[in-house]
Design a protein around this nucleic acid. Structure first.
Length: 512
RNA sequence: GUCCCCAUCGUCUAGCCCGGUCCAGGACACCGGCCUUUCACGCCGGCGACACGAGUUCAAAUCUCGUUGGGGACGCCA
């Protein structure tokens, strides 16, 4: 069996979006599974739109996701001579010809055809030019493009797609397409094929939007005398209006970078993305890297496009019509659903199940950005730091939450949740006295342990004739700023005694 | 407009190739319950789909045809 070689060829005209990322992941999985190589090739021939920043963004995004490549990045622009040589060869072999039709002429014909409700396909006037006529036009200095000669005899081009099955296209439905611009620059269709041949790509795994290009590319492979790769097209990821996701029209919500910034764990995003269009027949949805590589195959790829159910605000406008967004049945005002709920769920799953050291490393990066990091968290306070994370992570959804909802665990400048204040503090005026009194009792203890604090709380509640919950929930509010959280007795024992006492005493401030 | 692809719960999907085991299974979300000092986790339960119409057949989500709907490609972009 020949070596498996796949490639991911992004064009650096924007950030890495989730559709592209998914394709990259599929390629990567396939390569890993078959002990093959993943080639990264930057298709930067569109110099006007390509940017260095975009290239860096794509590389960063892939790295962050854990998609590692074995060769490259190669830059398509560096192979221009090779692309041109291929075009010349096609010309010399009689597989292509020079076309002197001007853009204006073609445009006019296209419009005429549209007006007559017909479809337009290049009529091949230049294909019929005699060598003399060609020489004559060249002598006049007329600009020309190079077109590929599509076979005219009845027949079709076909291939067996690994996902879509047999796909065929009649010769007559393919026009003599342009392969080199009038400025001498070869076009994508040709470059792509030439590069794939040179890179010895064995499997072309790409989005379904490449499906209808494939017959033309196959014609090129044949004319170039190269062996065909195996094609596998992936269904597309659509937006809420069922349009192809693109960086231009959707903005940050579809960019990988956005998820990174919002506190996603890289593998959680990858795991979610892989599920958009692929599944196993059993009910598994959570996969480690190894498990996914093992489980992945084209058999599990669906043929229908999937919708990326990212969050949109209540009403959205499309075609100039504003309509309410009825496809959501989750609480739109719940800030935790800032994107596809399933993505959030998978992220939360990893957040609470990954080894705590791994979470610690990721939170460290967050804290450094937030100015919350203390180098002692890597030293003598490491266990305390990790314990904090372990106690709180169960109800968090992203890495961001540790610095926001979990802020009180690490700093004193935390925010007080309004519901917590109203429901668990102000509702019981007695707490203004009770909480400081509880502080006194805690302060008298040599150290705050789970059992001791529980005993003290229960005794005190009994003396006061109130439910222990009143004391405990009030304490939770003033100590953590939250309505919810882990068992308070564990919290007392975990957050320092000094902080517990100070915050309980400070409860009076909320009643003023 | 032309060519191609697709069509199962709100979303992601299993089942379809090899009709009966499917009055269609799972996940997320939503609702209810249990657990609990709170919330979360977990567990239990609920809501919820075979686009439509013909045909073939004893039997169709599964096969065939048509309709409708959606998507993609049709560029001197990649």
């Amino acid at each position: 069996m020949t070596e498996v070689r796949v490639r991911f060829p992004p064009s650096p005209t924007g950030y890495l979006h989730i559709g592209g990322a998914r394709t990259a992941i599929y390629n990567w999985l396939f390569a890993r599974k078959h002990g093959g190589k993943l080639v990264l090739r930057i298709e930067d021939t569109d110099a006007e739109r390509s940017t260095q920043e975009s290239i860096q963004g794509i590389l960063d995004g892939l790295e962050w996701l854990g998609v590692t490549w074995d060769e490259g990045p190669y830059f398509q622009s560096e192979y221009a001579a090779e692309h041109m040589a291929a075009a010349q060869r096609l010309l010399a072999d009689g597989n292509a010809y020079k076309c002197f039709c001007s853009k204006e002429e073609l445009e006019a014909k296209r419009e005429a055809a549209a007006a007559a409700k017909g479809d337009y396909r290049y009529d091949g006037v230049c294909r019929k030019l005699s060598p003399e006529q060609v020489r004559e036009k060249e002598a006049q200095g007329l600009p020309y493009v190079i077109r590929f000669k599509v076979p005219q005899e009845p027949g079709k081009v076909g291939f067996d797609d690994q996902v879509y099955g047999r796909v065929e296209r009649a010769h007559e439905d393919i026009e003599d397409f342009v392969i080199v611009r009038s400025n001498g620059m070869p076009l994508y269709l040709l470059c792509n094929v030439v590069d794939d041949i040179r890179d010895r790509i064995s499997h072309v795994i790409r989005g379904q939007d490449g499906l209808s290009n494939t017959p033309r590319q196959i014609l090129l492979y044949r004319a170039l005398g190269a062996e065909l790769p195996i094609f596998a097209h992936m269904p597309l990821t659509l937006d809420l209006n069922k349009a192809k996701i693109s960086k231009r029209s959707h903005g940050e919500i579809v960019s990988v970078q956005f998820y990174r910034e919002q506190g996603f764990l890289p593998w959680a995003l990858a795991n979610f993305l892989v599920l958009l269009g692929w599944s196993t027949s059993d009910d598994r949805e959570i996969f480690s890297r190894e498990e996914l590589i093992e489980a992945f195959s084209f058999d599990g790829i669906t043929r229908s496009n999937s919708i990326f159910n990212y969050r949109k605000d209540d009403a959205f406008s499309f075609d100039g019509i504003t309509r309410s967004n009825s496809i959501f049945n989750y609480r739109k005002d719940d800030p935790k659903f800032f994107t596809d709920p399933k993505a959030i769920n998978i992220n939360a799953h990893y957040l609470r199940t990954l080894p705590i050291e791994e979470i610690g490393a990721l939170v460290k990066v967050e804290f450094q950005k937030e100015g919350l990091w203390d180098s002692a968290y890597d030293g003598e306070k490491k266990q305390w730091f990790l314990k904090n994370l372990d106690m709180t992570r169960e109800r968090f959804h992203t890495l961001k939450d540790f610095a926001s909802l979990g802020r009180a665990w690490f700093a004193d400048d935390f925010a007080m949740d309004e519901t917590a204040l109203a429901k668990n503090v102000l509702k019981h005026p007695g707490l203004k006295e009770w909480l400081p009194m509880l502080a006194e009792r805690f302060d008298a203890l040599p150290e705050l342990s789970h059992d001791e604090t529980e005993r003290v709380c229960r005794e005190f509640a009994e003396e006061l004739g109130v439910k222990v919950g009143v004391l405990v929930n009030g304490a939770r509010a003033v100590i953590t700023g939250q309505v919810k959280g882990p068992s308070m007795f564990e919290v007392f024992a975990q957050i320092s005694k000094q902080r517990v006492v100070t915050r309980l005493k400070g409860a009076t401030q909320y009643f003023e």
